[in-house]
């Protein structure tokens, strides 16, 4: 059996990249028994997700079409009874958000933030993964050190960074001053505050990207490289034609999910700058949170924000999926 499998690997290795369309698999065993297995394997996840996320989601869509707040949703608590007085208001929550002056500027910054962060996450993560994938002295040590930012809880890291970046007694400015430069208002100037939150988020996110891609690199059969070297391919050609396509399944996932994740990256913004100074580093989620959860909670408004953010991301995912399809990936 061993030999069979290993042979299979070699065959699979050459077959990969072009002939691995889902259809070939689907056709191989398209009967009910097969579906039964697939459904059984997915069922627990589907059920839990539908209950815990699906219910709030559907309820959110409904609430977003009303004017429900914490003050007018009926409930009885002990001796107090609040009558239910909220009403259906159609799409007015959505129009109020979209036509508000803040929305477009927040959206623009959120997109910038997402694109820059994900690009840096991926670029730096891939670079480091490639370096770590080489035979190298001290590789385990490097890998350990580079993953460290991930091992520290994010909220602690955010606080530490705020401390490091403090304009007056922060270490970063102390080093800048020692080197003969002036200190910078890392967190107090709108522009530098944006640079700072991006830097912190990149610092936090690179280890995950690096590990995910390292895992992906490990999965690329070495025989492909060996064959390419025999054929005289240059390192760049090997990277371009073996590494990148081989990473694609993992890459497409981590980039897509990384984008969604960064778009909704609440803690970093909230903990590092609290959206300041003057609201300048506020992304859509933190802004929505403030709008809806400060003081008397605006359930309908928060739901409308949530749905809107979801729609934006769904559109992004659809576009992304189209682009992947054109390259032969599909799901």
């Amino acid at each position: 059996m061993t030999t069979q499998v290993v042979d299979g690997t070699a065959a699979g290795a050459t077959a990969r990249g072009r002939a691995r369309g889902p259809r070939s698999r689907g056709r191989a065993g398209g009967f009910l028994s097969r579906h039964w297995y697939a459904w059984a394997m997915c069922a627990p996840v589907v059920i839990v997700t539908l209950v815990l996320i699906g219910y709030p989601l559907v309820r959110g869509v409904y609430l977003s079409l009303t004017d429900a707040t914490e003050a007018n949703m009926g409930r009885t608590i002990g001796m107090n009874t609040i009558p239910s007085t909220y009403e259906f208001v159609g799409l007015s929550n959505y129009t109020a958000i979209v036509t508000s002056g803040e929305f477009l500027s927040r959206l623009a910054w959120t997109i910038t933030w997402t694109v820059v962060c994900v690009a840096l996450h991926y670029g730096i993560g891939l670079g480091l993964a490639l370096l770590l994938n080489r035979p190298l002295r001290l590789r385990s040590l490097y890998r350990m050190l580079l993953v460290l930012p991930w091992a520290v809880p994010a909220f602690v890291s955010a606080f530490i960074w705020r401390y490091l970046l403090n304009g007056e007694f922060g270490v970063v400015n102390a080093m800048l001053r020692a080197a003969g430069f002036g200190g910078l208002d890392w967190l107090d100037d709108p522009f530098w505050a944006k640079v700072s939150v991006i830097a912190v988020n990149v610092w936090l996110g690179v280890p995950f990207m690096m590990l995910a891609l390292l895992g992906g690199l490990q999965a690329i059969p070495r025989e492909l490289y060996e064959a390419a070297e025999v054929d005289g391919a240059t390192p760049w050609q090997r990277f371009r034609h073996i590494t990148l396509p081989g990473l694609r399944p993992v890459s497409s996932t981590v980039v897509l999910l990384g984008t969604i994740w960064t778009f909704n990256q609440f803690p970093v913004i909230y903990l590092v700058t609290r959206g300041g100074p003057g609201g300048s580093s506020e992304i859509l989620v933190t802004y929505a949170y403030r709008q809806a959860f400060e003081g008397i909670r605006n359930y309908s408004g928060s739901a409308a924000w949530g749905v809107l953010i979801l729609v934006l991301l769904v559109v992004m995912a659809v576009v992304y999926r189209r682009a992947l399809r054109r390259q032969g990936e599909a799901w």
Binding site: V45, V46, T49, L50, I53, G54, P56, L57, G60, L256, L257, I260, W261, N264, F266, V285, A288, Y289, A292, F293, R297, Y299, S302, A303, W305, G306, I309, L310, L313, V314, A317
Partner: peptide
């Protein structure tokens, strides 16, 4: 479904 689950902001899901 797995994708959309990721998209709804957690802060809004808590309640």
């Amino acid at each position: 479904m797995l994708l959309v689950t990721q998209m709804f902001p957690v802060a809004i899901l808590i309640v």
